[in-house]
Design a protein around this nucleic acid. Structure first.
Lengths: 224, 224
DNA sequence: TCAAAAGTGTTAGCATTACACCCATGC
DNA sequence: GCATGGGTGTAATGCTAACACTTTTGA
């Protein structure tokens, strides 16, 4: 380590989303220690010396909340580094966006956390530090990835119905979509393969789909 | 500073672009010291303890290359943090995208740099560390901001002609655009105000424009 | 047979693309 | 009057948005 490297602490924070009861939920922990003791915050903590940033994000998420299943998506969001954002000293936090599949897996307060719970991401409680602006940033990113990418699929299990997929969109965007236009749009996109059907008690059975093995690349289709 | 903060060094690197001779140029420095002595690299260095990340980026840019004028645009790109990306130890670099106005201002090698120069951003020399992938990342970002934003204006001086604006697009995207469609697109967007005309020796004088004081917000126009 | 959920097409407006000639100026 | 660079319009095509009824099943 060069001697002129300043004493700046490096942390990761995680914005973990899932869909539950037709709502976009974010996973928060209740702090046990000062500062902001008792306040809700994003799970996170310091990066270890030989640990990739993404590994640190997953480790902190697991340690503090006990989520056990593999995330379907993990990407870096932004580095928040204003001096003064943490009263303990200069701490730069590299924030991450995580998507967990459908169903809000059980969580509990782990190391350093008094509790952990899922909250409506569009109506969060008061958050510690600058975590409210981190959450806003994450909401913008997830919206972008829905509209210009395939992120919606990461909220769902391996097979799913079109009404379920539409629910993901509606929960994230918090607005209703037209069913016919929605189906047209996702089906003509070509990234879904039929995968049988599902009877669900009452009502007409729904067609199941899974992500296509075909991948669109420069307007051409390629099998991967 | 909490005692459990690991010894991870925090740096910034800067990808500074401008347009010169109808090309997108990137500003590089030639390293004076090991590792990668003599190799070309992005300007950058360590963050000081009480320094905001963006200030550190501008300071390093100025110190190492001597650019004097104010950048028109500065945004954070991405935090690169793979262990092993720098042989001196664990160093996480928060990279930044900078846009300087038209004309490739004079540069020289400053502190720690043997030389500084502008290169074609689409055909860079071999770069030190993981700077080639940082540059790729920056190119994707700048393309995105051209197509879905107003970043093209930041490459130009206060007033400019439509052919100049089109040159910015063509240099960044490295492809030719149709003049009539281009003009229609940028003019109907409504973010340009006429600002006189320019005679340039031979040829028909060009209409000058400047950025509009009107700002489009949710499809409504608002004066800001 | 009724309630619940899934499924289905058409039209109008708007944006995008392709394409070739005239205009104003300096020399 | 010619070379240089700036400016202009239209038609075809594709995408988006609005809109209401039918089908299949279980109880």
């Amino acid at each position: 380590m060069p001697t002129h490297a300043a004493q700046v602490g490096l942390a990761v924070d995680v914005v973990a989303f899932t869909i539950h009861e037709d709502q976009l939920k974010v996973l928060l922990v209740q702090r046990r220690t000062r500062p902001h003791s008792e306040a809700w915050a994003l799970p996170g903590g310091f990066v270890r010396e030989d640990e990739p940033l993404e590994d640190a994000a997953l480790r902190e998420l697991r340690e503090e909340t006990g989520v056990s299943l593999e995330p379907n998506h993990l990407e870096q969001l932004y580095a928040f580094g204003q001096p003064g954002r943490d009263p303990r000293g200069r701490i730069v936090s590299v924030t991450h966006l995580v998507v967990l599949p459908h169903g809000a897996p059980a969580v509990y307060g782990g190391y350093g956390a008094k509790d952990a719970a899922w909250f409506n991401a569009h109506q969060p409680p008061e958050l510690a530090f600058d975590h409210a602006s981190i959450l806003e940033h994450a909401l913008r990113r997830v919206t972008l990835r829905l509209e210009y990418g395939n992120l919606a699929l990461e909220f769902l299990p391996d097979t799913f119905t079109l009404p379920e997929l539409q629910n993901v969109f509606e929960a994230v965007l918090s607005k209703k979509l037209d069913k016919r236009n929605f189906r047209k749009r996702v089906l003509t996109e070509g990234s879904l393969d039929p995968a049988g059907e599902r009877r669900l008690g009452v009502g007409r059975p729904a067609q199941l789909y899974r992500r296509s093995r075909k991948l669109r690349l420069n307007g051409q289709f390629v099998v991967h």
